[in-house]
Design a protein around this nucleic acid. Sequence first.
DNA 1: ACGATCATGGTACGTCTGTATCATGAAGGT
DNA 2: ACCTTCATGATACAGACGTACCATGATCGT
Lengths: 205, 205
Amino acid sequence: MPKRVDHEERRTEIAEALVRVAGRRGLHAVGMRDVAAEAGVSLRLVQYYFETKEKLLLYGLQHLAAGFGERVAARVRAAGENPGPRATIEAMLLASLPTDEGSRTFHLVHTSYAVLAVTDAALADQPFLKSPDAAEDAVTDLLQQAKDAHLARPGTDARVEAISLLAMSAGLGTSILAGQRSPESAAAVLDAHLDRIFRDGGRND
Amino acid sequence: MPKRVDHEERRTEIAEALVRVAGRRGLHAVGMRDVAAEAGVSLRLVQYYFETKEKLLLYGLQHLAAGFGERVAARVRAAGENPGPRATIEAMLLASLPTDEGSRTFHLVHTSYAVLAVTDAALADQPFLKSPDAAEDAVTDLLQQAKDAHLARPGTDARVEAISLLAMSAGLGTSILAGQRSPESAAAVLDAHLDRIFRDGGRND
DNA sequence: ACGATCATGGTACGTCTGTATCATGAAGGT
DNA sequence: ACCTTCATGATACAGACGTACCATGATCGT
């Protein structure tokens, strides 16, 4: 036989090609042949490693979500050795905004998947839909910690604020993608809300 | 000739068929033949009233946006004879959430269009993308009025809060659509923020 | 009443799509 | 050394898609 290749590695390369072309021309416009060309392989190879298009899409989605998770984690680590709850939350939220080309692609393709999932049963019960729940729990915990440490205003409802921040972040991200808002102004809005939640020192408003 | 028909009326019927099938099976999956079947006319007729698919999509988008505008306006009117700023804003935001089947369809199709617009130049510079700006101005004005009338907390930055509320509303709407959140909990989150902005009486926190 | 015009039907064409089939060289096990 | 098995190529197929073309009653203006 020919050289035994690492299937998983191959699949990753193809999935990344899928994400690239989806980010460029939109997920709806991506075909098997496009992915093959972008990955520099033949159509047959894409069929070989992913038997059907649906499996390719599913794998691509997982790969996308994993990459996003790493991106956020790296951003949080970059926030410092022992960042406070606010710095951590801020890093998470800002990492979710489509600022550079990479996160723009992620946001666009992710939203495309989400739209598809509404009418496609196979994508609907995919675990990537649960990652927002995980994020919500994480932010809630951080806010609760801040509240316990008297870093946040006493009246804060941790979960409601967590939901709000994540929904805002998602909404702002979409409007950045649509070209309605600049990343800077979106970041400023998020910061304003964090300022409100994390009162500094003893000010009571 | 045959009975002279009202072209605009016909186009509206077909556009509504487009929106219905798009809401059911997703905008990406909608074809000329599907629209024709849903509208109960022949494929030729869809071609006759909209020469090309792109024109059909554009018209459908306008129709969708117009319908949404009416929906919101009706909801605001239903808020009472002379509603205060808070009731008005609340009506606007709640009308934007995908609660019933109609608004669910609107949200889904609208989001599909927005995703397409990112990679499609023809849709990108469509006026419906400006309606968020109009909403932002309207909410900002209402918040400013409330502030001037001492109904809102003094520290409120009207525009930042308007942006936040609309972004939250959009983000919450998307998560409702994805089945991650119930309409009720989303409405509760929005209400919590309105409670915060519109302090009651003389409380200073 | 008649011819120009409008609304509609049917259908064919070319292209693109995802998938399946046939073919073949290259290297593993024994 | 041989035969199986793996990786890859080329291409064919059936269907759906948007669009274009031809046909034909119906009715309006005159």
